[in-house]
């Protein structure tokens, strides 16, 4: 974590755009929403971090070899392409893109998952893929202007 979440909020307000969008902090949020329900100002921190992550991807300034944004992009691409996620396949892709050594280290887990029938490589897909693609295409013109969510839960 290069900045604390509090620092991120302050940097956003002070308009330090590059520092915020290139930071690793925004990607480290695991979306557990603990901050959102506890913030005495009712700031929707998780949602703001989502918006920052989207902006970082749009502007192409996210940390390139940091696995988290890579995973997010691969996840989205797979959801777009197949309509469903095949987790094992997604993990393989992530490791090949970011960290070969981690893949090698994880062989034990992989084998155990195969043994217990949890590791399935055959891609899951939905039947009406064209329907989903048409829907996603309809948002294409809007997706570039993703806005910050309102700061307060109403």
């Amino acid at each position: 974590m290069d900045y604390t979440p509090r620092q991120i909020m302050a940097l956003v307000r002070a308009d330090f755009k590059n520092e915020v969008l290139q930071s690793r902090t925004i990607w480290l949020c695991a979306s557990c929403y603990a901050c959102t329900v506890d913030c005495p100002r009712e700031i929707r921190i998780t949602d703001i971090l989502y918006a920052l992550k989207q902006r970082a991807i749009q502007e192409g300034v996210y940390p390139r070899h940091f696995p988290i944004p890579v995973l997010a992009r691969e996840f989205a691409a797979m959801a777009r392409r197949h309509g469903r996620i095949t987790e094992a396949y997604l993990v393989l892709k992530l490791f090949t893109r970011t960290n070969w050594r981690a893949l090698l280290r994880s062989w034990r887990i992989g084998l155990a998952l195969i043994r217990t029938g949890r590791f399935r490589l055959r891609p899951e897909r939905i039947q009406r893929l064209d329907e989903l693609k048409a829907m996603l295409a309809a948002t294409a013109s809007h997706s570039s202007q993703s806005s910050f969510p309102p700061a307060k839960v109403t």
Binding site: W27, S31, Y50, A51, K53, Q54, I57, P69, L71, A72, R73, F75, A76, A79, R80, L132, M135, L136, A138, T139, H142, S143, S146
Partner: peptide
Amino acid sequence: AYMSVDETQAAVL
């Protein structure tokens, strides 16, 4: 993960 990439598409999905 999808919400980190594109909020609108995530909502549509």
